[in-house]
Design a binder for these strands. Structure first.
Lengths: 256, 256
DNA sequence: CTCAATTGGCATCCGTGAGATACTATCTCA
DNA sequence: TGAGATAGTATCTCACGGATGCCAATTGAG
C-alpha cells in the first residue's frame, strides 16, 4: 500500500529542505555518523571545481571520501539533491552592499560579486535550473539585492522581477563565456581566435540572400576586432542596459 | 601516430557544421543510406516533445526508427551533436517581422514567437548552452532580430549585445516556468498552489534577523496572491524592462 | 558482366553512472 | 546488558554512450 503521494512529496520536500538549511536531526541514538553533509558536499564541490561537473558523480565523491557510494545516500538523498546542496554552498554568503551610494551602485556591487562566484565555480552556471532560490545562501543573495532596492519605491512584484532578470542574466552570460573559453582550450586556440574562427566559418555559410542582416554582421569585423574581445565588455553592456531599464521603471513608478 | 589535434578538431567542426547546414556529401558509391539526418533528428525531436529530454537518447531514437543504436552514429556523430541538430530543427524558421511598426513592435513579435517555440518544445530551454548560434534556423532568428533593429542606429556590437540579452532572457524565463510547471504536476498540486507552498515553506525558514528584506517579501502576499499567478505577467515585466533599456540606449546613441 | 572498392547496418563488448535491496557493524538508551 | 536505532557495505539491476569489428549491399571501373 502506497501512502498518499501528496504526503510523500511533502515529506520529501521537507527532508531536502532540512538538509539544505542544516536543521538538526532528531535522534542521537545508534551508530554515530562518520561523515556529515558538509564534508560530502564540500568534497563534491572541490571535485567539481577541479574536474567540472563530470567530476562530481556519486562514485567519485565516495572514493574521495574513502567510503562506498551508497553511504552517501544517507546524506544527500539523490544526485539532484547533491547538486542543489553544492549550489548553495558554492554561491556562498552574499556581498556586503552599502546602501548609501544609491541603488545603482548597490546593484553593480551585487552583479560583480555574483559574476565572481561563477568565475570561481564555472560549473555552477551550467547546472539545470532548479526553480526559485531555496537555500540559505541563495536567500541571502536575494536579501542583499532586495536591500539594494529598498529605497527605490518599487513594489515586491517588481523587485522579484528585477531579481529574476538580473540573476538570470549574470548566470547565462557567465555560462556562455565559460562555454567559449572551454571551446577555445579544447581546440588549443588562443584567446580571440575562437571567435574569429566562428565568424569566418559562418561568414562562408550565411548567404546575403537568405540572411541579409546577419550576412552583413558576419561580413563586418565584430568577431575579428579586438574590441569585441574580452567578453567583459559585452557583459557590462547588458548590465548597463538592464540598469537603465530599471531606472526608467523607477522614475515611472515615482511620477505615475 | 595521431594527426595534428588542430587538424582533427577543424575537420570535426567542419563535419558537424556540414550536417547542420545539410551540405551534400561527397561520394555516391556504396550502399545507399536507408536513413537521413532529417529522419533521425525528426524522430528524436518527437520523442523529446513527448517524453522530455530523457526520451531522446540514442537507443530510444534507434528503437523508434527500427534500427540499432550504432547505425545512428553514421548520421549524428555523437550525442551532443544530436542535441545540436535537434535544437536547430526545433527552433524552426523565424517569424515574419514587419518593420513598419517600429523596432519595439518588431522585438515584441520576435520575443512572442520565440517564447512559443519554448512552449512547443519545453526541453529546448533546458539544454546545456552550446555557444553562439550556428545552425541555419538559429541564424535565421538572429537575422530576424537584426532586421527589427535595422532602423535603430545601433552599431553591430550593441545589436549583438541586445540579441544575447533577449535570447537569454526568453530562454531562462521559459526554463524556469517549465520547471515550476513540472514541479507542480509531479506533486499533483493545482496551478497556483506550488508557489503558495514555496512561499509558506520559506516563510518559516527565513528569519527577519538574518534576512530582513527577504523576510518581509515572504511575509507579503506576493506568492499567495493571484496577481503573481500566471508567470506570463512576470515574463512581460522583464520584456518591457529590457525594451525600455534598449530605448534609452537608442536615444542616447542618437543624441550622443 | 564482373569484381573490388566503398559505404550502410548490425552484434557485441566495455566502462560508467544512478539507484534499490538486503545485509552487517556499531552505538545509545533503557 | 541487550534491543532498537542508526551507519556503512556488498551486490544487483538497468540504462546510457561509445568503440570495434564483421557482414551485406551497391555501384562504378575495367
Amino acid at each position: 500500500m502506497r501512502s498518499n503521494p501528496s504526503d510523500e512529496a511533502e515529506r520529501e520536500v521537507s527532508a531536502s529542505l532540512r538538509r539544505l538549511w542544516r536543521l538538526p536531526a532528531g535522534s542521537h541514538r545508534g551508530r554515530p555518523a562518520g561523515l556529515d553533509v558538509d564534508r560530502v558536499i564540500g568534497t563534491a564541490l572541490e571535485l567539481a571545481d577541479r574536474d567540472g561537473l563530470a567530476g562530481a558523480t556519486l562514485p567519485k565523491v565516495a572514493e574521495a571520501l574513502g567510503v562506498t557510494k551508497m553511504s552517501l545516500y544517507r546524506y544527500v538523498g539523490s544526485k539532484d539533491e547533491l547538486l542543489d546542496l553544492m549550489s548553495d554552498l558554492a554561491i556562498g554568503p552574499p556581498p556586503e552592499i552599502s546602501e548609501r551610494d544609491g541603488w545603482r551602485a548597490g546593484m553593480q556591487q551585487w552583479i560583480l560579486a555574483n559574476r565572481q562566484v561563477y568565475e570561481r565555480h564555472p560549473w555552477l552556471a551550467h547546472l539545470p535550473i532548479s526553480g526559485p532560490p531555496r537555500g540559505p545562501h541563495a536567500i541571502g543573495w536575494m536579501d542583499a539585492m532586495l536591500c539594494a532596492l529598498r529605497g527605490t519605491g518599487l513594489d515586491w512584484r517588481a523587485k522579484v522581477g528585477v531579481l529574476n532578470l538580473i540573476g538570470g542574466y549574470v548566470r547565462t552570460a557567465s555560462a556562455q563565456e565559460r562555454q567559449l573559453a572551454q571551446g577555445r582550450q579544447e581546440i588549443g586556440l588562443d584567446q580571440t581566435q575562437s571567435e574569429q574562427d566562428y565568424g569566418r566559418a559562418l561568414a562562408e555559410l550565411v548567404e546575403p540572400g537568405h540572411y541579409p542582416e546577419a550576412a552583413k554582421l558576419f561580413a563586418s569585423d565584430v568577431f575579428r576586432s579586438p574590441l569585441h574581445q574580452g567578453t567583459d565588455g559585452s557583459f557590462r553592456f547588458g548590465v548597463e542596459l538592464i540598469l537603465n531599464g530599471i531606472d526608467t521603471l523607477i522614475t515611472a513608478t515615482r511620477t505615475g
